[in-house]
Every structure is written in structure tokens, then in C-alpha cells.
């Protein structure tokens, strides 16, 4: 520990801390030609549905429902994931109709169900080797 530890995002550009309503929002792309919505954004600026390069950066809804989920009982290979095991992953269908895979938090792992209302939470993922707190997006149950 050098004393210079910081709080850093897992990856730049996945979300904004303060969206139009002052709350965090995931950032996606909308194709201005076919209307398809993507998360994460298309780094190369190409719509993989209609091949247009006419994409606009948008704030995605903070809310959605569980489309599918799994409770993972083993540690993933490679040592990249440093969190608790078991842990839950979910595909959450956001209000724009885009599926986002993410970690699920603030819930008893046995209580996760398809159709459950979820909302975005920016939360600690782990501490990196330099002692920085690495933040990421997660989903937690919401009041609909």
C-alpha cells in the first residue's frame, strides 16, 4: 500500500456516475438507422444488426427484469474473478429491450427468480494488486 490507493472503474465507458437524473446509468449505443440498442457500446462504431455506422451514445434505463440467471458454485478459471463463491449472474432485460449480463447483489442467492424486478447498482468488485478499489455495475432487487 503506497497510500495513493484510489477508487477506479473496472473499465472506462461502461457507465456514467451522473446521468440526466443525477443517478448512475449504463451507457449503450442506439443505431439511428435500425433502432437496435447495444450494451456495452460498439467500440468500432458498427451496428452488427444493420451494419450502419450511425450510432448514438445513450444512457440506458436503471431498471429491468431477470430474464435468466445462474448461481455459480465454482471459482472461474484464470484467477481474474476475486469475489465470493458462490455468486449469482443474471441476464437482465432493461426497459429498452437490451439484455445485460451482470453480477447480482443484495439478495439471498436462493431467492433470485425469472421476472424479478432489478435495478442498477455501482458497487465494489474487488481490490486490485495496487490496493485500488475497483468498481463495477451490478443488479439488485428493486421495488419494481
Amino acid at each position: 500500500m503506497s497510500g495513493a490507493e484510489k477508487t477506479i472503474p473496472l473499465r472506462e465507458g461502461l457507465w456514467t456516475e451522473k446521468g440526466h437524473d443525477g443517478q448512475p446509468h449504463l451507457l449503450g449505443h442506439r443505431c439511428l438507422d435500425c433502432g437496435e440498442v447495444f450494451f456495452p457500446r460498439k467500440e468500432n462504431g458498427i451496428c452488427t444488426h444493420c451494419h450502419s455506422q450511425n450510432l448514438e451514445l445513450i444512457e440506458l434505463s436503471r431498471k429491468g427484469q431477470v430474464h435468466a440467471f445462474s448461481v455459480v458454485m465454482l471459482r472461474p478459471p484464470g484467477g481474474y474473478y476475486r469475489g465470493d463463491v458462490p455468486y449469482a449472474l443474471a441476464n437482465v432485460l432493461l426497459d429498452e429491450g437490451v439484455l445485460v449480463e451482470g453480477l447480482v447483489t443484495d439478495v439471498n442467492l436462493d431467492d433470485i427468480k425469472v421476472g424479478m424486478d432489478m435495478e442498477l447498482k455501482i458497487d465494489k468488485l474487488h481490490e486490485d494488486d495496487e490496493g485500488n478499489t475497483v468498481m463495477t455495475y451490478k443488479f439488485r432487487p428493486s421495488a419494481a
Binding site: 473496472l10 473499465r11 461502461l14 435468466a68 440467471f69 445462474s70 455459480v72 465454482l74 472461474p76 478459471p77 484464470g78 481474474y80 474473478y81 476475486r82 469475489g83 455468486y87 449472474l89 441476464n91 449480463e101 451482470g102 453480477l103 425469472v114 468488485l125 474487488h126 475497483v134 463495477t136
Partner: peptide
């Protein structure tokens, strides 16, 4: 970054399709 979030578990992908 997705491996750091624990996505790289093939059975979990199958599990979500199974659900």
C-alpha cells in the same frame, strides 16, 4: 473485464439457457 466479473464459466452460460 468480463472474466473479472466472473462471466467465464461455461456451465453458467448453459445454466442460463436452461433456466
Amino acid at each position: 473485464w468480463q472474466r473479472q466479473m466472473g462471466f467465464n464459466v461455461q456451465p453458467a452460460d448453459y445454466a442460463m439457457r436452461t433456466v
